[in-house]
Nucleic acid binder design. Structure first.
Lengths: 215, 215
DNA sequence: CCAGGCGATGACGAAATCGTCACTTACGAG
DNA sequence: CTCGTAAGTGACGATTTCGTCATCGCCTGG
């Protein structure tokens, strides 16, 4: 009883949230396909909601797509967090995040394409991957593991490498994504000032199991 | 006389080329503004040609935009070539190209935006900047200046850095573009395996004068 | 000077897309 | 049980965009 009364209006709110969520997910589909100019009707049909429902939740297509990107980013970021808990060495955290991101391009292609299609705009964003990378780099500097003059400019290279790596893996499905990712990570770690042998070693460490994370 | 007869039909061909070129330039304007879904009529008005002329030269808007991107890339590449003739050290060529590219983001914003808006797709392209960067890196490896395991993966980082640097300079007009570019170039050179002090020195060298190149 | 061809042009009917609105359905309070 | 409200729905008229086509004007060769 208490649980239901906690924040009373429930049934209706859930319905509303479900409709909105359906629209967002449909938008992510088109976002992944790069079709930014889909007719609203097609969007609502893909979401399996009525055409009029769109205007109950969003004023414009741009607004919906923005919400779709933010949602995708938040999920991407949360996933990364799950996968890097309990690591001490900032360089290890950074390397593991970067390597996992490389893996995720193949594991969740839709999410990957959302990233690639909005890539540059997101590099300076305060959501998603960028703030995490920034934090890891600064942690690494404080811990004396990294050696760069301007963290923000190192971020530029890290973000660019992550994006273009994703694009490479997307354009060349035959490439071994794990090997390519680990090599790029190693190069980036060297750029960050880590000793070459340490950079190499840190990229050989086992990664957490990716199976069974998303039901 | 001989000159005119060389490849006979001239007057008409020039007119045709002028119309086409006007369309391409207009398209580049919209490309730079990120407006990919401009009505054809607006495009032809911006180009100051008749609406029907569009269909004399292109079948679809996509086709025009593709031509616009290729044209911009070719001009960008040709400009880079002009500015790096006569350099011997591959590392120097690379550094100078990269630093000039950073400068060009501010000097020719339209060209810069075309690059940014099509960025990732161009990283793996065989036109524009990518093939030059690839060539410079391989030259550097042969000359023993660079030390990376896989040139193609180093390219990934270089391309990403160039793009995200452009985005950073675009988002933060207050930033000193020369200083930021030189620092990023230095970091990238370190990533490529150049000794830190050499990387620093090579980024201090004077650049060719940019004034008076485009009349 | 004439004729033929090629490119330029914009009016027009066809088609796509928009966003409102009048109506329905589902829920929850009294 | 009944009513009020919030959300869902899709038909419809208005608007935008498309791409064709009949016509025009410039150039060139004869």
């Amino acid at each position: 009883m208490d649980q239901q009364l906690r924040h009373a209006p429930n049934r209706l709110e859930r319905r509303k949230a479900r409709t909105r969520s359906a629209l967002v997910r449909a938008a992510q589909t088109f976002l992944a396909a790069g079709k930014l100019n889909v007719p609203i009707l097609e969007l609502t049909q893909a979401a399996d909601v009525g055409m009029g429902s769109f205007y109950n939740h969003f004023d414009s297509r741009e607004q919906l797509f923005q919400a779709a990107v933010e949602d995708a980013l938040d999920r991407y970021g949360a996933l990364l967090d799950e996968l890097t808990v309990g690591l001490d060495d900032p360089a290890h955290v950074f390397a593991q995040s970067f390597r996992l991101t490389g893996r995720l391009h193949r594991r969740t292609p839709e999410l990957s394409k959302v990233l690639l299609n909005n890539g540059l705009a997101l590099a300076g964003s305060d959501r998603g991957l960028a703030p995490r990378a920034r934090r890891d780099i600064e942690d690494g500097l404080r811990a004396g593991r990294f050696r760069v003059r301007e963290p923000e400019l190192a971020m530029v290279i890290v973000a660019g490498a992550a994006l273009c790596l994703g694009q490479l893996l997307h354009d060349h499905p035959e490439r071994d994504d794990a090997a390519a990712t680990d090599q790029v990570t190693e190069d980036v770690l060297r750029m960050l000032g880590l000793a070459p042998d340490q950079a190499h070693e840190i990229c050989q460490r086992p990664l957490p199991d990716l199976d069974g994370l998303r039901p």
